[in-house]
């Protein structure tokens, strides 16, 4: 599966992008009110929080450490078997 290799890479790029976008010098002195009440600098960072949730949702889909988890499950089942014996 190509997503096995590319998934973590995509998430790494997206997280890096979020960290870069976090430093929003472009809205630093902008006091525009979005929807007439929320300063654009605050609105932008609230959107970044939502974007973070979306990226992390994507991470659970394409970059979840399935192999590690399977190995852990197998090891735990082995322990249970040995305990029963």
């Amino acid at each position: 599966m190509s997503s096995k290799r590319s998934g973590p890479m995509i998430i790494a790029v997206l997280v890096l992008a979020m960290l870069i976008l976090h430093q929003d010098n472009w809205f630093w002195t902008d006091g525009t009110l979005v929807f007439g009440f929320i300063p654009v600098g605050l609105f932008y960072h609230a959107c970044l929080s939502v974007a973070a949730s979306v990226v992390w949702y994507l991470a659970t889909k394409i970059a979840w450490p399935v192999e590690l988890i399977e190995e852990t499950k197998a090891a735990m089942q082995q322990d249970v078997k040995e305990g029963a014996e």
Binding site: M18, H22, A46, L48, T72, M76
Partner: peptide
């Protein structure tokens, strides 16, 4: 203050849960 303390935590806390939490859980269970 929101960008400094909150949106940064939103990104990085989840990053820690994802990169550190899942892996230590796996090792700890084994």
């Amino acid at each position: 203050v929101y960008g400094m303390l909150a949106s940064s935590s939103g990104i990085i806390h989840s990053l820690c849960f994802f990169l550190i939490g899942v892996k230590v859980w796996s090792f700890a269970r084994r």
